[in-house]
Design a protein around this nucleic acid. Sequence first.
DNA 1: AAACTAGTCAACCGCTAGTCA
DNA 2: GTGACTAGCGGTTGACTAGTT
Length: 358
Amino acid sequence: MVRTPCCKAELGLKKGAWTPEEDQKLLSYLNRHGEGGWRTLPEKAGLKRCGKSCRLRWANYLRPDIKRGEFTEDEERSIISLHALHGNKWSAIARGLPGRTDNEIKNYWNTHIKKRLIKEGIDPVTHKSLNSGTEKSENHLEKQKVTQTTSDDVLDNEKAKKNNKNLRLSSARFLNRVASRFGKRINQSVLSEIIGSGGPLATNHTTTTTTTTTTTTTSVSVDSEQDKSASSSFTPTSNLLSQAAVATTPAFSSNFDVDGNVNPTSSSSTFSDSSVNNHLMYCDNFAGNNNIDDEDTIGFSTFLKDEDFMILEESCVENTAFMKELTSFLHEDENDVVEVTPVYERQDTFAEIDKYFS
DNA sequence: AAACTAGTCAACCGCTAGTCA
DNA sequence: GTGACTAGCGGTTGACTAGTT
């Protein structure tokens, strides 16, 4: 590999903060000639900067489509979700937030989100609860802070947990009822649509990791390179679904590291409520619920591993839009009819859902 | 008012991947 | 196949600012 000549090797080049005059020169040159040719650009534009510096200035600051100002809550949620999905792949995360640069997102993560997650008892790396026991004492002080809550707080948290649990269970049942009707028919392309993160799910890529099931032929493969190139060319038919899927279904990819290897420490949890984030805790509760009939546990679970199944249902609770879209999407897929009464307009009860599908 | 501290973020550095001759 | 080059990425640095002592 050939090293690029470093800027410092070229004498007389300026470093540090850009002046308005420099910005103006760069802007006017790029307006006239467009992007590219960064190496020769500085000389042509009359700038005493290296090309790399010019490109960065343009990419991170001068580009007209850059969104400025505070991150919205939606953007923040997206960042957390995408970080759970991609890890520190800031450019991949940035692709999910139009107008935001990877640098900006990286900074925002390090200065805001990371700290907040720690404060809430969530490991910003694994997105797992810090109370899971696998993390050591490096976050001890932060943990102490978190646990120093009033009894009222504890009660409120317990209530919230209970509500969350019920909501999760109900919505999970709902989703799986839906999925159970269609799950076995879902082929890879449909699954690909749901995931929406790029490209065919099963390929002959040399570094794929495959999740197989015993009851269907569905093979979920995660292409380690998908976020580098394929995602940009993949166009889901359903924008909402694809966006929601990216934000809510890390099940298919967060268990894999950037090289496509199974990542035992990764978790799906992408939401701010730490009680929601501990999906292992929820798995136990779910498994211990005798009121769940078999039908509730099939559906997506027929081709997802148990942990992925849990990840999926947990995520869906947090994004009813995803569930709505999924329902109508699956229904469209079933009938090839676009105009259907979506099941989500019905009550979220077994009776109503059964009536709907009967 | 001055000194100090912590937080923020633009810019830089070192590196890899891809392209082309 | 090799070298030169560009583009892009993620981690780090350091200047700046706001808050505190």
